[in-house]
Every structure is written in structure tokens, then in C-alpha cells.
Simulated scan of single mutants.
Amino acid sequence: MRQRDERASATLFAVAVVGVLVLVGAALGVVGAMVHAHRVAQSAADLAALAGAQSRARGADACAAAATVAEANGASVDRCTVEGFDVVLQVTVAGPHWLGQHHDLSAQARAGPA
């Protein structure tokens, strides 16, 4: 009966475990970056809509004010409409562009007088 040599089998197992941990870490990094980008987009949309509604109430250009605030918060305005005294807009923020992720994230907001 021959005995099998099991030298270096622990090394192979350790390399496999490290590979799995790196893959899981990278996936969690992408998810975290996407959540952060979505939060930035929603914050920029909310703040820009509020600025646009305040500007509209004062009689100024609501979409110009909203665009200024959105750009100051790292977003670009895709669509801005004024419905009465309400300002409705959609903004886009660049998403994480690594590990095959190439999508930008957008958010919508609406603001007006109470």
C-alpha cells in the first residue's frame, strides 16, 4: 500500500481562500461605491430641487438655480420642469467605473411650497 504525499496541499488551500476573500472584498467595494454614489445623487437632487423651488418663489429662474446647486454637489441636471410652484428634476452622478461597472446613477426630486 502506497502512502500519498500531501505536502503543499495547505498552500493550495490558502491560495484558494485568499482568492475568494479578494473576490468578495472587491464585490463589497463595488456595492459600497454604488450605494455612496446613489446617496450623493439623491442628496444633490433634493438640495437642487429645494434651491429651485426657493428661486421660483422669488420669481427667478428655478432650473438655473437648481443646476448651480446640483453641479456644486457633483451632479448634472438631466431634466428640470416647473409645474406651478413645484420644481421637478432628475440628476445624474458618475458611478464607480471599475470591475466592469460602467453605469451612472440618477435620482429624482420634487420641491415646492407647503
Rank of each mutant, 00 (worst) to 15 (best):
G74P: 05
Q101E: 08
E83R: 13
A64E: 13
L23A: 12
G32D: 11
E71N: 12
G112W: 02
R110F: 00
A51M: 00
A64V: 12
D46E: 06
V93R: 01
R7Q: 01
D61Q: 03
Q54M: 03
E71D: 14
A60K: 00
S106G: 11
T68L: 10
S106R: 02
A114D: 15
S55L: 01
A64M: 07
V93N: 00
L47M: 10
A75H: 02
N73T: 15
V88N: 15
A75N: 03
V88W: 05
Q54P: 00
D86P: 06
C80H: 08
G74R: 01
A26Q: 14
L23S: 15
L21K: 07
M34R: 12
V15Q: 05
V35Q: 14
G74N: 05
A49F: 01
A66M: 01
A57Y: 01
G84S: 09
V69P: 06
V17R: 06
V17L: 13
S76C: 05
G19N: 06
A107Y: 09
D5V: 02
L50H: 01
A10N: 03
A109R: 12
D46Y: 03
V69A: 07
R7V: 01
S9K: 11
G52T: 04
A65Q: 08
Q42W: 10
V93W: 07
C63N: 02
D61Y: 00
N73Y: 13
L105T: 02
R7D: 00
S106L: 09
A65M: 04
V20L: 13
A64Q: 12
H36K: 09
Q101K: 07
P96D: 06
A65V: 05
H102D: 11
D104C: 02
V35I: 15
M34L: 14
A49C: 03
G100E: 03
Q108E: 12
A107P: 07
A114G: 13
V91C: 04
A53S: 02
V22F: 09
T92I: 10
